Amino acid sequence: MFQPKIILTAAMLLSALPASAHGASGDTPSIYNKLIAKAASRPPANWRKLTDQGDAQVIAFFMIDSSGNLINGPRIVSSGQPEALRKALEAKVRNDVIKAAPFKGAPNEKYSGKVLKFLATTCIFEQEPGCVLTLSVRLPDDVRAWKEQ
């Protein structure tokens, strides 16, 4: 039986980044990933049709306070086609991050004021060798400015 593509979070990648950094400085504990996954909404009803037509990747950048509340973001960066799939994955990831906050039971004091990055993709790299992650790890300028606020 056909299995539609699911949303993978690339080994549930979530990286803590200093707001001025251009790349990852280390991975945060998996508790943030679990909390986002627990809050995750179901994919849209037309998901199978959309994923049959292409692949998409989304990165959500966000910042939390010491209580785990969102204080900036999520700021979404995405790539992939078709546009409808990309937009659906953007909306899903944005909503999942917002719904997961405040991040109860996570080491929020440690990551307070740092930019966190959550990656979601429809690519199954082992099964789709032509599917490559095309998003840059460079922080968008507006995200780097969060630390300066």
Results as ranks from 00 to 15, higher is better:
Asp55Met: 11
Asn95Arg: 13
Gly130Glu: 10
Gln127Thr: 06
Gly80Thr: 12
Ser15His: 07
Asp55Thr: 15
Leu50Thr: 00
Phe62His: 04
Ser41Cys: 02
Asn46Ala: 09
Ala120Asp: 09
Arg138Asn: 10
Val97Glu: 03
Gly105Ala: 12
Ser67Tyr: 01
Ala37Lys: 14
Val115Ile: 12
Ala145His: 02
Met12Gln: 13
Lys114Ile: 05
Asp65Trp: 00
Ile124Thr: 08
Ser66Arg: 08
Gln3Leu: 14
Val93Asp: 10
Leu85Ala: 11
Tyr32Asp: 10
Ala84Ser: 13
Glu148Trp: 03
Leu119Ile: 12
Asn46Leu: 03
Ser136Ala: 10
Ala120Leu: 02
Ala24Met: 06
Ala84Val: 06
Leu13Lys: 10
Leu89Arg: 06
Glu83Cys: 03
Ile98Phe: 06
Ala21Met: 11
Ser136Pro: 01
Lys5Cys: 01
Ala88Asp: 06
Ile7Glu: 07
Ala91Met: 06
Lys147Tyr: 00
Arg75Asp: 12
Val132Met: 05
Ala24Thr: 13
Lys5Thr: 11
Gly80His: 04
Gly80Asn: 04
Ala40His: 07
Leu85His: 06
Val143Asp: 03
Arg86Glu: 10
Thr121Asp: 00
Ala106Met: 09
Leu133His: 03
Lys114Ser: 09
Arg48Thr: 08
Met1Ser: 13
Ser112Pro: 02
Arg138Ala: 08
Asn108Arg: 00
Lys87Val: 13
Val115Cys: 03
Arg75Tyr: 14
Thr121Trp: 01
Pro18Trp: 07
Thr9Pro: 00
Lys117Ile: 00
Lys5Val: 08
Ala24Ser: 14
Ala10Leu: 13
Arg48Lys: 14
Ile6Pro: 01
Glu109Met: 12
Asp65Leu: 04
Leu17Trp: 08
Gly73Asp: 08
Asp96Glu: 15
Val93Thr: 15
Arg48Asn: 14
Gln81Val: 14
Gln81Thr: 15
Leu8Cys: 06
Leu139Arg: 04
Ala60Thr: 09
Ile71Phe: 01
Ala40Ile: 04
Lys104Gly: 02
Asn108Trp: 01
Ser67Cys: 00
Phe103Lys: 01
Ile124Phe: 10
Gln149Arg: 11
Gly68Pro: 06
